[in-house]
Write a protein that binds this DNA or RNA. Structure first.
Lengths: 227, 227
DNA sequence: TTCAATCTTTCATCAACCTTAAAGTGCTAT
DNA sequence: ATAGCACTTTAAGGTTGATGAAAGATTGAA
């Protein structure tokens, strides 16, 4: 479960990161609204905790813009004030829950569990492998560890879709040629190689640890580069 | 939007029913936990408001059992006590949100909107994307940043309505042809293209930053022009 | 070292996509 | 009725960029 934490106050941020990590969440921390929005848009987070008061862009605005772009990630808004109107604005800006500082960690964790339960059912058709997330409905490949993403062409998309769906297996040229191009004769296998080359470039571009390895005489395999 | 209200105290129940109906929700009221659970299991509700203290079975138990049976309906828990442990138990029992009595109706309504947002894509009859606002009841598209607006034809309206409702995704010609025209055969896909052209003109007319981008081999995508 | 397997780059082509114009359809006001 | 209007469909020609073929470079097994 991957959480985006947006909080500018250093002490608070450090404490929250520590707390969340201890609870086995993967946490990424952003210190201002603009970067938080950018990170959210990558679509790799299962939920987000946003502080309202932040430089660049406040939490409400981040939520509003993210929702406006179709990002459905559950958001928990965090604020110092406990005014009713703040709560209402928070929730109407697109947040799913609202918590007032100071709060007890027990309550924060309970609310996160509640949000997380829901996010499971809202995962769209995105496939994962290693540090990669492939969103077929957006034709986009993103690297979870750094948020970088690329647009894929139709062939590239179908290659990755096929390989993600057959993890650990070695795909032969023939399988790929038939599945993706509908080719029958060996003559056209070079196409597979060409597109493997294109696809590898995209993997490198997003900075993924995953690579497409050729297995001589057999075909191609998706695997994580050894450290 | 259909809400299940489970509350045993008559006066409170009556007030809530009145409030919710006024907000145009369809409300069904149950006075004890057992009937609330039975009602929830029917699966017809978009959300549920459960009082914790109820005869037969308390709210926590109703939530827990419903979740156990795979019911995913969003639940808002209502209670007189404000103990932290209560909140934690409430959320962990499967509730999505938790509100302590006494509460202000504004907050209750905001929280319900937050819960209901997932099932309904539009709140006030107008869909938004980027600097655009689409009023479906008036068949009007307006650009928020300059107030300029245009009248849309039925097809244009339905194209935008569909695309606004599936933000961030790439819509295929086929999806659009089937959804909007009821076409089955590829021959008529040119219609989609023609209407995309018309619709683009309207986007340009109102001076929006949003554009309809074709994604070769895949379909169309709504996005904001890069600065 | 050899050579077959695999990789990469390049580039003309053509399907995919765009636009415009004209004809068709159905509604409303006169 | 009929003209005018708004919207839709059909058709045809124009544009464009992903695609696949070709060719040369690189790799690794024997």
């Amino acid at each position: 479960m991957r959480i985006l934490l947006a909080e500018d106050e250093k002490r608070m941020a450090a404490a929250l990161v520590a707390l969340l990590k201890q609870e086995k969440y993967d946490v990424d921390h952003m210190a201002d609204g603009a970067s938080a929005l950018a990170a959210l848009e990558s679509g790799v987070y299962d939920m987000a905790v946003l502080d309202v008061m932040m430089p660049e862009m406040n939490g409400f605005e981040v939520a509003r813009r993210a929702r406006n772009k179709g990002i459905k990630t559950p958001i928990l808004m965090l604020t110092a004030k406990s005014q009713l109107d703040d709560k209402v604005e928070g929730l109407d800006s697109g947040a799913d829950d609202y918590l007032t500082k100071p709060f007890q960690t027990k309550e924060l964790l309970a609310r996160l569990r509640a949000l997380g339960r829901r996010s499971a059912s809202f995962q769209d058709g995105s496939l994962k492998y290693g540090d990669l997330s492939l969103d077929t409905s957006k034709a986009t490949l993103t690297c979870i560890s750094n948020g970088q993403s690329v647009r894929l062409g139709e062939k590239e998309l179908r290659i990755l879709e096929y390989m993600f769906g057959n993890k650990g297996q070695i795909m032969t040229r023939e399988q790929l040629a038939v599945k993706i191009w509908g080719f029958e004769n060996e003559a056209e296998y070079n196409n597979v190689e060409v597109y493997m080359s294109f696809t590898r470039k995209k993997l490198a571009f997003v900075g993924s640890k995953v690579e497409i390895k050729a297995v001589r005489g057999l075909g191609y395999e998706l695997r994580e580069k050894n450290v």
